[in-house]
Amino acid sequence: MLRSCAFCALLRLFFILMRIFPLGDSAATIEFGNEISAGFNSRSLSLAKALSSNPFAGMNEAVPAYASVTVYFNTRSTQFETVKSEIATRLSSLPTDKPNALRIIEIPILISAKTSPDLDRVGSFAHLTVDQVLEIFLSKIYRVHMLGFLPGFAYMAEVDDRIAAPRLVTPRTKVPKGSIGIAGRQTGIYPLESPGGWNIIGRTDLQMFDPESDNPCLLKPGDEVRFVRE
């Protein structure tokens, strides 16, 4: 009894705290909050999963982000108001416990002057030695909160506050493929060579994105990642 009341209260809280708004006429965004947090992301991942595993008529895809889910749909078969109620139905039966990680993936990280051009910068930001920065960085397991920016680019969190160096003021025009970077409390791996402004502290030889493969991206939302020094 007590448990179900607590559940109702929690559910009511969800509805007060979250909002749904149209992202144009063929997508809707459900926002749980506006910060990088394991809680908001867990809810986003569970809702996206609930929708993807049991899509409503006209749904194209459900895309989880840090603290939101965006549902894309075909306006020929459904409309915003219907989508809203479909989402509400899924929310009311959403599991409230933290979803287990899909997988824990080990990613080898190469540290050298060439592969880690911003390690010193992160060190001076943190007032720590390079070795201390690395020790802090490597001691954590990171969760893939979402993908974006480039095919297979995983946004992972949360980087320890002490080494959460902000983005470069002037982004680089070319960041090599496989580069591992820090931007505030996020860490990510560049799957392709691209412009970018994250602090590059290492590189991996692991293929993050392979268009020829049936599973073109190594990481998926909800995966957990451990970096292992080579």
Partner: peptide
């Protein structure tokens, strides 16, 4: 803002007060 999904036609306000409209090759978030 924390990043969230966007779509073809999303009008974003960038820090200098100007607008960007996302088109077909937009990034996903």
């Amino acid at each position: 803002m924390v990043s969230a999904a966007v779509t073809f036609g999303t009008i974003q306000l960038i820090p200098d007060g100007q607008l960007i409209v996302l088109m077909a090759d937009h990034q996903t978030v």
